[in-house]
Amino acid sequence: MAELNHTSPRASDPERAHPFRTSWGSRALWAGLVLYLVYAVTTLDLTWARFLVGIDQGGELLGRLFPANFARWELLLSDLIESLQIAIIASVVGIAISLFVGLLAARNLMPNLVSAPMRVFIALCRTFHPVIIAILFVKAVGFGALAGILTLIVASIGFIAKLFAEAIEEISLKQVEAIRATGAGFASIILFGVLPQVFSRFIGFSMYQLDSNLRNSTMVGIVGAGGLGGTLFSAFQRFDYDFVTAILITIIALILVGEALSNTVRRVFQ
């Protein structure tokens, strides 16, 4: 801004002459977007008439969703407990495994030969949606909580082992060196040089994962892996909509309680 010079406005410079000139690139992008929309809507058989019929149905559905029906609260409670069990076991086991996997995948502590395969393993755990993993486990170990637990363990590894590895890669190596200079062994280096630097972040990630495991434990039941999801799905299939509302309210309450708990734990370890 130092060279604000009114005598030579440099009108020849196109940037100066039109600060807000039209960008042909972005216009082409918009045109492409409109073309895509027209193409997609025509190929997918999305019609306005169907939408309007649906809106009518939606009104009727809303009427049947309320008031919530808690008459079968015993079933609801036992499913809720199963969801909780799945989430707790999967989180504890998944976090314990992730600690080791994350450590092995950290490139600043491990040779490439170890960290590269571990990173591929983590990426593999992340690629598929938990529900698809749940389908495979249901076929392998049968219906029930076990399939849900195994699914969420895989999902946990995919998410927090990656975050653990990244946190370890960001540590200061000076402390590690100091511990090493005292002649400490490998386990001592990890325990006293690495872990104190990343511990509170680990707690944060773990709490986040517990949260997301709670959410997902209510979902994997849709494909038969135990918990609230199965009951929710069958209530939908039996058009038992007031029970659906009751289940949804329970799920939302569970998630809210989980969030409050994890905030408390985070504050303790601050």
């Binding site: 707790i88 076991i89 049968g142 076990l146």
Partner: peptide, 17 residues
Amino acid sequence: AAFIASLRTVEIIPEFL
């Protein structure tokens, strides 16, 4: 405590595992 309580009460058929 939560982990142990869940492990003891969850319905898992060991043979499946």
